[in-house]
């Protein structure tokens, strides 16, 4: 168990004023069996925002709009999280929901490469769902090399595997694709890690009726160094910021995450 303090900062700079800016944010960690969130505050351009809204995946959703002209959009979420309260997350919603996580999405649809990897693997001789998830997690870790700038947000699991390089998002998508080929319901997770300067992504798999977290990028099981923000079928369900605005402007986004341990 750890007491972590986090600050998530996202800034978008516009090179010309924009108006009627509608946004929706998924940037707030949620309290569950694994983690307890306290003193959460979120500000948008300096103003505190609150919400009781959640999306279909159970993520906290903050919606709003800035009608007047502005040249920057700054979101700060901060708070304290007790992590590692449990090793898994229970599956509270009705079983019906697991169907959504069982089937391929455009990002996780397997092509030749993934099919080939799956066929050549030892998955068939492994019996329990948890062991199968664990096996696919270890397998995924070694499939590609970590390298920034090779892939982007539109890169599918199949493309990342073919390219041989990628970032946390690609590792997570490849593991999702493999788990779905094995018939395991699984989901994409966006979160933060102790000591990282950016947000992170990993995979959760439903086995024994609960969700277990696997981080194929670091070849680590998800433990008390991880704070979960949101989850969904793939990257696109977890987009931290979605926005539309009026104006002719180029935008530049930067994200800065800090997670530190509190020793009392």
């Amino acid at each position: 168990m750890k007491n972590l303090h986090f600050a998530y900062l996202m800034t978008i700079g516009f090179d010309a004023p924009v108006t009627k800016h509608s946004y929706s944010l998924k940037c707030c960690p949620l309290t569950n069996e694994r983690q307890k969130v306290e003193n959460l505050t979120v500000t948008v351009n300096g103003k505190e925002v609150r919400t009781t809204d959640t999306d279909v995946y159970g993520n906290i959703l903050i919606s709003g709009a800035i009608p007047e002209a502005h040249t920057s959009f700054e979101v700060i979420a901060s708070g304290e999280v007790q992590t590692g309260l449990d090793i898994c997350e229970s599956y509270d919603s009705e079983i019906a929901r697991s169907y959504i996580y069982k089937h391929f999405t455009a990002m996780t649809f397997p092509g030749e490469k993934l099919t080939d990897v799956f066929k050549k693997s030892d998955i068939k001789i492994i019996e329990t769902p948890y062991d199968r998830a664990l096996y696919l997690f270890r397998l995924t870790s070694g499939l590609i090399k970590y390298q920034k700038g090779v892939t982007d947000i539109s890169t599918t699991a199949e493309q990342a595997l073919s390219g041989g390089h990628g970032v946390c998002q690609d590792y997570a998508h490849i593991m999702l694709a493999l788990c779905r080929m094995a018939g395991l319901p699984c989901r994409y997770v966006v979160g933060m890690m102790l000591g990282e300067g950016e947000s992170h992504a990993w995979t959760e798999v439903l086995c024994r009726g609960v969700w277990y977290g696997f981080d194929p990028t670091n070849n680590k099981l998800v433990d008390d160094n991880y704070i979960k923000i949101s989850c969904g079928r793939d990257y696109h369900d977890c987009t931290v910021n979605k926005g539309v605005f009026y104006g002719f402007a180029n935008q530049h986004q930067s994200i800065n995450v800090s997670v530190i341990e509190r020793n009392e």
């Binding site: 959504i100 069982k102 089937h103």
Partner: peptide, 9 residues
């Protein structure tokens, strides 16, 4: 669930 007609939202 693998049909594009099903909207999880």
């Amino acid at each position: 669930f693998s049909s594009s007609g099903f909207l999880p939202q």
